[in-house]
């Protein structure tokens, strides 16, 4: 296993009969993911693009040995969907659904944690290891197998950056889009140890955003426990204070969590911080050359 997913990952898609669920089940299959089941209560016994649909996650797991879930269930039902996956023994759940109330997410996070299930997301693009497996919605075209790990709080910006790495002739080991909501299942600090341990990752690209203190916490971890080179980028340097920029995570409050404080903390921890997304591939290539990889 690389980081969280590999060729043994068997995915159940919760909400597979919805538009997004169907589209991305097909895309995951095209990536090489074993999409073994779909779940939509009341639609058991049908099929979506060759994937058998079950009424419950328990049934899907019993019949197909699914071990990971990709959740597209709309926000009002997302909490229930996640709790069902956890109780059915799923130990990795990627929640793509956006606009989940954070009070629901608090319950989801703490319950999953108590049962040993890792959540990626919500409101996230998910996880992909090129050549192995993808659970989520990151477009297949941006990937190429390689040795650069990527963790990000953004969605589209992640695609942009991962694509830039590919166009530079480099490739990725594992890419995780953590989501930018106020409560996430997996934060930078949770993901960093997995990349530190991963023998297939030589360098990590960290893509942060204004708001919260996740990047500052990551810097603290990197300074003391992370031995691989890090290239970072923080979006939102020009964001006006107090204005909402699209989702709940991206709010500047009380002078904390600004692009400047985050960049400074990461630089102090030894990371190279790019000023613009298009600087990242060159910085990655340079660092890999210096450290003797590539």
């Amino acid at each position: 296993m690389t980081v969280l997913v590999d060729s043994d990952t068997r995915v159940v898609v919760q909400g597979i009969t919805g538009h997004q669920g169907t589209v991305h089940a097909v895309q995951m299959k095209a990536f090489g993911t074993h999409v073994v089941a779909g779940v939509t209560p009341g639609k058991g016994g049908t099929e979506v693009e060759g994937v058998p649909v079950f009424n419950s996650v328990r049934e899907a797991v019993d019949r197909t040995h699914a071990n990971a879930s990709c959740i597209f269930v709309p926000a009002p039902g997302a909490k229930d969907a996640l709790l069902e996956a956890v109780d059915a023994g799923i130990r990795l759940a990627v929640i793509v659904t956006e606009h989940i109330p954070f009070h629901d997410m608090l319950t989801m996070y703490h319950y999953a944690r108590s049962q040993g299930t890792r959540i990626i997301g919500p409101n996230c693009p998910g996880i992909a290891a090129p050549g192995k497996s993808k659970v989520g919605i990151i477009p297949n075209i941006v990937f190429r197998p390689g040795r650069v790990g990527v963790i990000s709080r953004s969605g589209t910006l992640t695609y942009e950056i991962v694509n830039g790495i590919k166009e530079h002739g480099l490739g990725q080991s594992t890419c995780i889009g953590l989501g930018g909501d106020p409560v996430v299942g997996t934060s930078f600090v949770d993901a960093l140890p997995m990349f530190e341990k991963d023998p297939e990752t030589d360098l990590l690209v960290l893509v942060g955003e204004i708001g919260g203190t996740a990047e500052e916490d990551a810097a603290e971890y990197i300074a003391h426990h992370f031995s691989k080179p890090v290239v970072a980028y923080i979006a939102g340097r020009s964001a006006p204070p107090g204005k909402r920029m699209g989702h709940a995570g991206a709010i500047i409050t009380r002078g904390k969590g600004t692009a400047a404080t985050k960049a400074a903390a990461l630089e102090a921890a030894g990371a190279n911080v790019a000023r613009f997304p298009y600087e990242i591939p060159d910085m990655v290539a340079e660092k890999l050359a210096v450290t003797g990889h590539r």
């Binding site: 990000s152 709080r153 953004s154 969605g155 589209t156 910006l157 992640t158 942009e160 930018g180 893509v207 955003e209 204004i210 980028y233 979006a235 939102g236 340097r237 020009s238 964001a239 920029m245 699209g246 989702h247 995570g249 991206a250 692009a259 000023r275 613009f276 997304p277």
Partner: peptide, 16 residues
Amino acid sequence: ANGAGLTMATLDVLQE
């Protein structure tokens, strides 16, 4: 733009 992160990055570049 599409996505909060890409929108913010776009603004950063324009302003710079």
